[in-house]
């Protein structure tokens, strides 16, 4: 999960300026926010799958280390919590926008 360090949103999305040149420099220089989010989600999914796999193997009685199973589940837990926090922040930002008086 090295990709969890998001650059500041302003770096990724040149907000007010929506013309083509600005967008293309952002795209070539850095990954877009959506790509970051997708990558992170994939990582989280991978951690969950790994934990699932190991748990199934353990349940089947295959040769897996109990400590490795526990560690995988803890990693899955931490990455999941991180995702939830990011989701909360995104929803918070959206609600802040919705509260704006027009």
């Amino acid at each position: 999960m090295a990709s969890i360090n998001f650059p500041a949103v302003s770096q990724v999305l040149p907000t007010t300026n929506t013309n083509a040149t600005a967008a293309s420099t952002a795209a070539s220089g850095q990954k877009s926010f959506a790509a970051f989010l997708k990558d992170s989600l994939n990582e989280v999914n991978k951690a969950q799958n790994e934990s699932d796999n190991l748990t199934t193997k353990l349940a089947k009685g295959e040769d897996v280390d109990l400590s490795q199973v526990m560690i995988a589940s803890q990693k899955a837990n931490i990455t999941m919590q991180a995702t939830i926090e990011i989701r909360n922040k995104a929803v918070e930002a959206y609600q802040e926008m919705m509260r704006m008086t027009v």
Binding site: M1, A2, Q68, K75
Partner: peptide, 11 residues
């Protein structure tokens, strides 16, 4: 260095 470096080492 990943954020799980410490956990991997302990593992």
């Amino acid at each position: 260095m990943s954020i799980f470096q410490g956990i991997n080492t302990t593992g």
